[in-house]
Nucleic acid binder design. Sequence first.
DNA 1: CTGAAAGCGCTTACAG
DNA 2: CTGAAAGCGCTTACAG
Lengths: 350, 350
Amino acid sequence: MDSDERIIGIKDVAKAANVALATVDRVIHNRAGVSKKTKDKVLKVIEKMGYQPNIMASNLSKSKKIVLGVLLPNISEGSGYWEFPMKGIVKAQKELSQYRIKIKTFTFKQDNNKEIRKKVLELINSDIQGLVLTSKFADEIEILLEDCKEKKRPYVFIDSNVRKIDSLCSIQQPLFESGELAAQLFNYCFNKGEILILHLKDTMDTEGIIGLKEKGMNAYLKEKNNSIVTKSLVITDFNENAINRMLTQTLEENPMIKGVFIPNSKVAYIAKYFEKRAGEKIYLIGYDFFNEDIEYLEKEIIDFLICQRPEEQGYQAVYKLFEHVVLKKEVEKEIIMPLDIITKKNYKYY
Amino acid sequence: MDSDERIIGIKDVAKAANVALATVDRVIHNRAGVSKKTKDKVLKVIEKMGYQPNIMASNLSKSKKIVLGVLLPNISEGSGYWEFPMKGIVKAQKELSQYRIKIKTFTFKQDNNKEIRKKVLELINSDIQGLVLTSKFADEIEILLEDCKEKKRPYVFIDSNVRKIDSLCSIQQPLFESGELAAQLFNYCFNKGEILILHLKDTMDTEGIIGLKEKGMNAYLKEKNNSIVTKSLVITDFNENAINRMLTQTLEENPMIKGVFIPNSKVAYIAKYFEKRAGEKIYLIGYDFFNEDIEYLEKEIIDFLICQRPEEQGYQAVYKLFEHVVLKKEVEKEIIMPLDIITKKNYKYY
DNA sequence: CTGAAAGCGCTTACAG
DNA sequence: CTGAAAGCGCTTACAG
């Protein structure tokens, strides 16, 4: 049962090809300074013997560290979301520290363009060999991406890639489909009435994202061809009183509203309003799971949250860079995250 | 910004403690043959210098392979589920192959006690240093677990640990809570009526599992104090005609049934019946996601599936054994999987 | 273009 | 109980 095949190493290849260790190494890493003839000979032997490099040995003998960069918003009010990808990044870092991988983090305040540009400049002048970032702030990072392309520095997007910018890999949730999913869930709760889609504008370029979710929602409703329609409301003023006023007015004017869809991570703001509101149950569906949502999930004021495993996105982003830079593996261009559904009864295990 | 702290190794410790490399090695691995005095001295230096072992180097110089065993049902009709943990196990194996980890798989037909016992015997007489298995088949594996305890072989349970058997780690979904979740979902679909709980008996000891799910469901309904009640139906004959007959009769006699809860992975069997059935919509909630469910999800005959990331369970099981055996890390006694909700609109990304 | 040799940080016989 | 030395499978100057 024990097939104790001897592991064949660079030494075996060298002997079989009748060359020195260093030559085999050069061929394996495609380094210059090997004649075509020798290279072919070695390649053939590698192929025939089924040589597999030993990463542990390789890393052990390597001297230089590999540094990866991370450019993300810092964790502050209004951008608490970024805590989760960061956790995943830190986890990956710990796991990979044995491989002499280091991570340099560059954070900035979301609406501070000057700070973003400063960090971009720091990154351009740094010695990183790979980069994790989000495709939001597209204008500010454009120059950084150009620089990366020139220097052949790989970069990975997390959280979104709405403008379809080229990258080593982009990791995101399917947006359109998440809108469909939300519609399906609403449809389980009621099959006649209106869904109010709230556009909570903040400074980020998220209209593209919200737009896709909205399209998905309408697509599902159309497909089911039933009596649910959507209605949009744009909120620009985040002041609590302003929100209350707008919602009260809208709900009074539209008594058929049975559900509210908040296509970003600001559900708790809105749930607060519904907690105090009397009248018939209105179903709430939002995105992403925060501590402040728990209270409203427990009271079933927030009914469903659609989540995208942000921690895993951060982890995967670093891991894919590692695979590319260290292991020289092929990396898939796109990783699509599952659409997780969170309710009162399963958030504890998420 | 670059804190280029020199990594301190066994050599540095040896020099600082004024002993030989081998002695430091002995202390690190708690091997015999070191005087208390020397040991304390070395330990103190390790502590002070903050020495961290380099696993890559450690593994490279180790000669012997580590073999882990896996004892699970084979993949056949009626037990297709085990394909998923197996996938995770294979994934972990690939990732860990660099660490000289080998996995020996022992599979058996679920209802073949003789075969289980045979595999158990093989395992007892094997040279494995860790074991992945499920706590189902508790009677058959009892002797194996005793043997493991005696030999101090660690073992990890996946999929369930209803009888609360001791192990290095057990990985499972929260059963009671999954019943609550199912009840919550039904409650979104209707708020008056009956839920039929189907007990599809097969040869495995799964009554404990089903019982817990049922209790969770009733707990939620009671908590909500509304007008949904449950009703159980036991099916022992899996013949299609028999199922049809029993269901038709039950539904006729109980016109208030609005939902059917199938607390195991056999939903597709039941969905087949509902596909052909005329009459008012009856909601279906089941467990685990298989290819044969897709058709019924698409038609929204199956409404929700509650899933437990079986692939990740297999992966984690192997990984935890690896952490324990190779890295000598502390491993958590229990890993609770999230309760994933799958519908027509998100199964593609699961 | 090619090779011999030292070294990465550990483990493992072997000698004392 | 303790230590000196070889070796794990690679990479990296250095010499030719």
